[in-house]
Amino acid sequence: MKGRLAAAFATGVSIPMIAAMAALPRHGSPDQPIHTHVARHYIEQAPESANLVTQVLLDYRGMDTFGEVVVIFAALVAVLVLRARGERPLPAPSPSPIVGFIVRLVTPFFALFAFHVILTGHEAPGGGLQGAAILGGLVLMNGIVFGPERARAFLPTRALPWLQGAGPLAFLAAGILGGITTGFALGYPAHLPVLHEAMLVGVELGIGIGGAVIFSRLYLAMEA
């Protein structure tokens, strides 16, 4: 009965939604507002060799990306507050020697790849967050195969409160630096190419490392 009701509700919602969606300007045609207004300006101003998505993320809409790293940070502290006190972790699994060997074998390569993704993000697909997910996934993989203790060993205990905030902190630093050099918070100084590059890389690294620590801690908070 309840299922029927819900299905009826979902259908009832879907019909006007589909009607409205179908009435949108035809997607893919180059003359609709989405291509002729702001986006066109971004593409016309694009530098010689750059990933425009990363440029939008870090430069034009840097505030959103700052918000985004604060969102995952907020999720982490919310989960940490929720954590039960004094709960026993699950016993560590006994890993198969083959799986263990393979995981140990690929771990350094994956880490290298993750840093590659983080550092080349402003010219190719990728960036801080994607690298963070790969690094975090690496820790998760080790945790699932060898037990949470092994995953915890990846994280430096003393520096943890600073590292987990690396993303927002990097943004704050870049924001202040930009404010000093360009006169606007979160601006990137086009007239100082070295500093510009350093700020981009710094922010990407901050997002990458901070994100990886956050993903790993989220997993650890749930596992133990």
Binding site: S96, I98, V99, I102, L105, V106
Partner: peptide
Amino acid sequence: LIAGPTASHALAR
């Protein structure tokens, strides 16, 4: 070639 057999092994185990 590395991942496929490992995954199958882990599944079967």
